[in-house]
Amino acid sequence: MIKLLFFGRLGDSAATAPELFEASEGLTPSAVRYALAIEHPRLVEALLEPQVLVSIDRVIADWNQPLTDGCELAFLPPVTGG
């Protein structure tokens, strides 16, 4: 299983989202993102916003990097103001 983490305001939108996601061969953060967006409409806008970052085991990762069973996948909403 893959542990999901929604940081900051993404956590507010992800109240009904699962904490775990079934691992499978060739699974990527991008595929998890779209699967979550389909299952959880409240997450669509937040997850598909430009500049959302993703990390695998606390390392900022590419959306197409393969996920391994037991890893932590975190979604980080953009913060752009100053």
Binding site: E49, P50, Q51, I60, P78, V79, T80, G81, G82
Partner: peptide
């Protein structure tokens, strides 16, 4: 390396989302 400079400007700034 992490943020594509050609991606659209995020909607989450202080003027639209507050801070």
């Amino acid at each position: 390396c992490s943020i594509d400079p050609s991606s659209p400007e995020g909607r989450a700034d202080c003027d639209t989302q507050g801070v």
